[in-house]
Design a protein around this nucleic acid. Structure first.
Length: 259
DNA sequence: ATGGTGGGTCACCCA
């Protein structure tokens, strides 16, 4: 199975880019975040015509939204609400004769890394804490967790750990919480397991840079985690950074795992 | 310290 995760920043604007990606890289299942559309406008027919006929999606007007699009049959679909909100930040499917896949869009957390000054940061910390409790209570087996988690946990996950220590996405309170979620929640970080911890790895580059490739001030915000029982079956991991350079790009690029 | 760009919807929100 070839599985991808991609914060697409509007599925309707980039539907053709998604289909080209699915075809070019022979993807079985893709998990999308920031689809930014209500379910009635989700381009399900276009994806089905291209051969990806099995869908699970939860969207809302303008904001958030997650989807799982598959050419393998889906047995079951469900979602949870997190941090006492009903925003569309999680969806889960069970692939027929295959693993369960959780797709998350963790809140970005605003600009100020202080939960009292900035409620968005509190929401992000509460969301991660709730995920940690959830997976500690029911340890994952034959499960995969992917998504835009909006945290770059390691020094090598950002262009400069020193410059970003007070920047939301790489503050110690966030990186420590995410590492706890990985270890206590029963997950293996498949991307770091594959590449090791020395290499700089990024999946997101700001739209605001004059030249994203020249400055290369990236962060690894998009993750693929595998339950311990399933981790030995990972064959390949790839971050498709070239998708940052296409016409009308998302600010995130796809990450692929092959099992 | 500041503002830089992009997406959605329709005067701003959010990233």
């Amino acid at each position: 199975m070839r599985l991808a995760t991609w914060n697409i920043n509007s599925i309707r604007l980039r539907i053709q880019l998604v289909i080209n990606f699915l075809q070019k890289h022979d993807i079985d299942v893709i998990c999308l975040q920031e689809t930014k559309t209500e379910d009635k406008f989700f381009p399900a027919a276009t994806l089905a015509e291209a051969g990806w006929r099995h869908h699970a999606f939860r969207g809302e007007k303008s904001y958030n939204g997650v989807a799982i699009v598959s050419r393998l049959p889906i047995d079951q679909t469900y979602h949870e609400n997190w941090a006492e909100k009903t925003d569309c930040r999680h969806i889960c499917v069970q692939i027929e004769n295959g693993p369960s896949i959780h797709n998350f869009y963790v809140p970005a957390g605003g600009d100020v890394p202080d939960r009292y000054e900035n409620p968005k940061f509190g929401h992000k910390l509460d969301f991660i804490a709730e995920m940690t409790r959830y997976f500690m209570d029911q340890k994952p087996h034959n499960e995969i967790l992917v998504g835009d988690l909006n945290i770059a946990p390691l020094a090598e996950d950002v262009w400069s750990s020193k410059h970003l220590l007070k920047v939301v996405s790489h503050t110690p309170v966030e990186t420590e919480a995410l590492k706890r979620l990985i270890s206590n929640g029963g997950w293996v970080d498949a991307v770091r397991e594959h590449f090791g911890t020395d290499e700089k790895l990024y999946s997101w580059w700001s739209y605001r840079a004059r030249d994203w490739a020249a400055s290369n001030r990236g962060r690894r915000l998009d993750h693929i985690w595998i339950s311990h029982d399933l981790a030995p079956s990972v064959k390949e991991v790839d971050i498709k950074a070239d998708y940052r350079g296409v016409e009308k790009p998302s600010d995130h690029v796809p990450v692929i795992v092959e099992l």
